Amino acid sequence: MLSRTANSLYWLARYVERMDFVARMLEVGLRMGSMSGTSRDSEWTSTLIATGCEPGFRATGRPLSADGVIPYLARDPDNPSSILSCISTARANARAVRTALTKDMWDAVNETWLEAQALGDADFTQTGIARVLDWAKRRALQFNGAYKNTMLRSDAYYFTQLGTYVERADDTARILDVKYHVLLPSHEPVGGALDYHHWTALLRAVSALRAYHWVYKDRIKPWNVAELLVLRPEMPRSMRASFDQIVVNLDLLTGEMNTRGGEPHRLASELHARLKYARIDDIFTAGLHEVLTDYINRTARLDSEIRRFFLM
């Protein structure tokens, strides 16, 4: 496979996953904003930090409020991580490798782009944005279902999988880190009513509330939420599950290309081993924020090494 084809498939998957993540983060911000006792500044600051968009937003001079943050994260063409920007970039990558996609994959991306063109100002207000966020999440699920159910298991599929799970590992670490570090209540103990609602909002954002109760059969506790999203392999959005897939697809790619593993394989295997054998008590002892920040930085380095080894 040509490196430019692999590059487009990798980034196509990453931007679809990012669109889904930004939609979920906006949902968290809206849910937390509706809770009494929540600081509106902290709720939107945390949303911007989690999506990596805070510096860009500050540069616009917009107010730190729903009316300022929602349009920036949902539709601003100058924000490369806004929902509509992710859709446009995903479609551009899909067009570049149209012949490498199945019909269902192309339809999922192209129809999303066409429907996005029909969205108007009313769709990006506080009253209209909920419908857009639900639509974006459904469209991401449609794309993921399309490629997982129609692509031939070859290097094209492995690069698409790799993009999905590198992005997901980073996103899960970010959303968990922001909740724990930025939104940790300062005026009440951990485990208080407001803290409970914050963790519930986070679990809803990653579609894990029912999974949490199924696994733990207990009231929501921060260390259990962290364990579910960091270490539990059966939770599909957990960091552990994401690195399970990253390692598998890197191994499949080297087998498909008849080449030896390189720095991406070493980094991914190291991070995977840490997640596989870690205990949540040890992670909290070391500091959850410090551990998650380290994983975010190492995942960014892994992305750089993947691009250097395979895509350049």
Results as ranks from 00 to 15, higher is better:
Gly33Ser: 07
Met257Gly: 02
Gln117His: 14
Gln117Gly: 03
Leu194Tyr: 02
Met312Arg: 15
Arg153Ile: 02
Arg14Asp: 02
Ala286Phe: 07
Trp135Phe: 12
Ser186Met: 03
Thr200Tyr: 05
Tyr295Asn: 10
Thr99Cys: 00
Leu9Ser: 12
Trp135Ile: 07
Arg14Asn: 06
Leu162Ile: 15
Arg18Cys: 11
Ser238Gln: 09
Val178Arg: 01
Tyr147Trp: 10
Leu275Tyr: 06
Asp170Gln: 10
Gln161Tyr: 11
Arg274Phe: 04
Arg301Pro: 00
Arg279Phe: 05
Glu256Ala: 15
Lys276Arg: 08
Pro233Phe: 04
Ser88Ala: 15
Arg219Ile: 12
Ile83Lys: 00
Asp281Tyr: 06
Tyr216Glu: 01
Ile129Leu: 04
Leu203Arg: 08
Ser34Leu: 10
Pro77Val: 06
Ala156Val: 02
Met312Leu: 04
Val182Pro: 02
Lys221Asp: 14
Ile87Ser: 00
Tyr147Ile: 01
Pro71Val: 01
Leu84Lys: 05
Gln126His: 03
Asp76Gln: 07
Asp123Asn: 07
Thr254Asn: 14
Arg58Cys: 05
Arg260Thr: 13
Ser36Leu: 11
Thr112Leu: 08
Gly255Ala: 14
Arg138Tyr: 10
Ser65Tyr: 12
Ile296Met: 10
Ser36Ala: 15
Ala116Lys: 02
Leu101Arg: 13
Tyr147Ala: 02
Ala268Asn: 03
His289Ser: 14
Leu229Tyr: 11
Val291Leu: 00
Ile175Trp: 01
Leu253Ile: 12
Leu267Asn: 12
Gly192His: 04
Leu302Val: 14
Thr51Ser: 05
Thr102Tyr: 02
Val225Ala: 06
Leu176Asp: 10
Met312Pro: 06
Arg174Pro: 06
Ala130Leu: 03
Gly52Trp: 08
Arg301Thr: 14
Leu26Ser: 02
Ala118Gly: 10
Met235Glu: 05
Ser39Thr: 15
Ile49Ala: 01
Glu227Trp: 01
Thr127Asp: 10
Pro80Phe: 05
Ala59Asp: 13
Arg91Cys: 05
Thr5Asn: 13
Lys221Ile: 15
Pro77Ile: 05
Leu64Val: 04
Ile220Asp: 04
Ser85Lys: 12
Trp214Tyr: 15
Val132Gln: 00
Ile283Lys: 00
Val22Asn: 00
Val247Ile: 10
Ala122Glu: 14
Met257Val: 01
Leu48Thr: 14
Ser42Pro: 11
Asp76Ser: 13
Glu111Asp: 10
Phe124Arg: 04
Asp121Leu: 03
His265Glu: 12
Ala286Asn: 09
Asp294Phe: 07
Thr47Trp: 01
Ser42Trp: 14
Pro77Asn: 05
Leu292Phe: 09
Leu253Gly: 00
Gly287Gln: 08
Asp67Leu: 08
Met151Leu: 13
Leu30Thr: 13
Ser88Asn: 13
Ala193Gln: 04
Val28Gln: 05
Pro77Trp: 04
Leu288Lys: 11
Ala118Asp: 15
Gln161Trp: 09
Ala278Asp: 05
Thr60Leu: 00
Glu27Phe: 01
Ser154Arg: 11
Phe284Pro: 04
Tyr10Ile: 03
Met151Phe: 08
Asn93His: 14
Val291Pro: 00
Asn7Cys: 01
Asp20Thr: 06
Leu302Met: 05
Arg18Asp: 08
Leu30Ala: 11
Ile70Phe: 02
Thr99Ser: 02
Ala136Thr: 14
Ser36Asn: 13
Glu270Ala: 09
Thr254Glu: 07
Glu227Ala: 06
Lys276Asn: 11
Glu111Met: 09
Ala59Tyr: 07
Leu64Ala: 01
His197Met: 10
Leu184Arg: 13
Met35Cys: 11
